[in-house]
Design a binder for these strands. Sequence first.
DNA 1: TGTAAAAATAGGAATCATTACTGTTTATGC
DNA 2: GCATAAACAGTAATGATTCCTATTTTTACA
Lengths: 134, 134
Amino acid sequence: MPNYSRQRESIKKYLDSHFTHPTAETVYLDIKEEFPNISLGTVYRNLNLLADMGEILRISLGNGPDRYDGRTSPHYHFICSQCGQVLDMDIGPMPEIDEAARQNFSGVITGHITHFFGLCPKCNIKNTFIRKGE
Amino acid sequence: MPNYSRQRESIKKYLDSHFTHPTAETVYLDIKEEFPNISLGTVYRNLNLLADMGEILRISLGNGPDRYDGRTSPHYHFICSQCGQVLDMDIGPMPEIDEAARQNFSGVITGHITHFFGLCPKCNIKNTFIRKGE
DNA sequence: TGTAAAAATAGGAATCATTACTGTTTATGC
DNA sequence: GCATAAACAGTAATGATTCCTATTTTTACA
């Protein structure tokens, strides 16, 4: 069982109050306001610890740094192809995806990860205005 | 339009005849038998080129190096939690996943990536034998 | 409370995957 | 053939993350 650490508590609080799916680097820079001497390694170590304890989620997108999420209830993510923003999706788990995968598969399917792509609401509106202006 | 290159042709052929979803490193080491002086950078550049041209697929798992696939028709992948092997899934596209995501979402959903996790057929059988032996 | 042991830290070096750079070689079009 | 463009090998550089070590914090309990 890990000991208490002020740095870890601060990181947890940060993720619980920010819904931007920040990278380790972003967490590091923001937490630095409170702990000017905190090191990036400490941020990584605590993000890993919290994720291992199930208190936060790690979101690995194909490219770029991992992102972290204080919302631990299972949910899907959307990545905007235009601005790169990561959004929480407002839909529940879809066990039927695993069910479909079990057809014709002789191993065991325990779960899946799914990320959605497209245009986020903001970029979608922005594009509409730009097209009107042409 | 790119010029012809023997190295790129060899990489393409390699992926068309191996269904192991190799990493760039694996491709590099195997292609080296034919081109002893080929450099890892050349392998990466050609894998990127081929992927951009739609002749191969890049598979980004959350951790570890990317993998490449000569099968370009859209399909899903399975990653064994025990041995790490990547397998092609024998199921067609599931547009209904995108359909579900479009509920309550005011942006545009253009697609999704889904990876399945669990035990591959081999590890599943292996585990059964081990449990029997206990 | 004071102190010893265990855990966490800061700071920096090391690692892994990938891309960028540079001078040389290969392919293409005339 | 020869000029130009593309690709190459070799290597340096980058970005994300982990690892290492000496120091500081936390905890337990005397």
